[in-house]
């Protein structure tokens, strides 16, 4: 077993899981799928600097050999942006769920408010007119 094999196969497994989940019919699963794909993408970008053990890019007079710092810098911001994207998608799906009463993304018409956890509907709102 080499590190290269472990990392490459892990990336492959994450991508497979991510694609499968992203193709599911509900927003939360799609978010999970995107999260897995993001892990894989970040790992992949990071791995483009090749796997190097024990040579962090912290400059020192005594050291002459380092790993490639550029992919690390790119991936660092990518991780933070991934969070921003995930947060945005989560909120977007939450808002669409609140707006329509459905968390489906399959395009098929579903009766709104017919789901668990949201048994109450606008009809109950009759007496509650607070803003």
């Amino acid at each position: 077993m080499s590190y290269e094999f472990l990392v490459a196969s892990a990336i492959g497994v994450l991508v497979a899981g991510g694609i499968y989940l992203a193709l599911r019919a509900r927003t939360f699963q799609v978010v999970l799928g995107l999260t897995l794909i993001s892990y894989a993408v970040n790992l992949f970008l990071f791995a483009s600097g090749r796997l190097v053990v024990g040579r962090p890019p912290i400059w020192d007079k005594a050291v002459s050999d380092y790993t490639d710092p550029l992919p690390q810098a790119l991936v660092l911001t990518a991780i933070v942006i991934t969070f921003g994207m995930t947060a945005f998608v989560v909120i977007l799906s939450l808002r669409s769920f609140l707006e329509t009463g459905s968390d489906h993304v399959d395009g098929d018409k579903v009766p709104c408010d017919a789901q668990d956890g949201m048994a109450g509907s606008i009809a109950e709102d009759g007496e509650d007119t607070r803003p």
Binding site: G12, V15, R50, D68
Partner: peptide, 24 residues
């Protein structure tokens, strides 16, 4: 979906492997 996911996973894993086993 599973078939597509596995194909995608194998391809990306393969690319990663091909990249990691070559010098930059």
């Amino acid at each position: 979906d599973g078939a597509l996911a596995i194909t995608g996973g194998v391809l990306v894993g393969g690319i990663a492997w091909a990249m990691l086993t070559r010098d930059p």
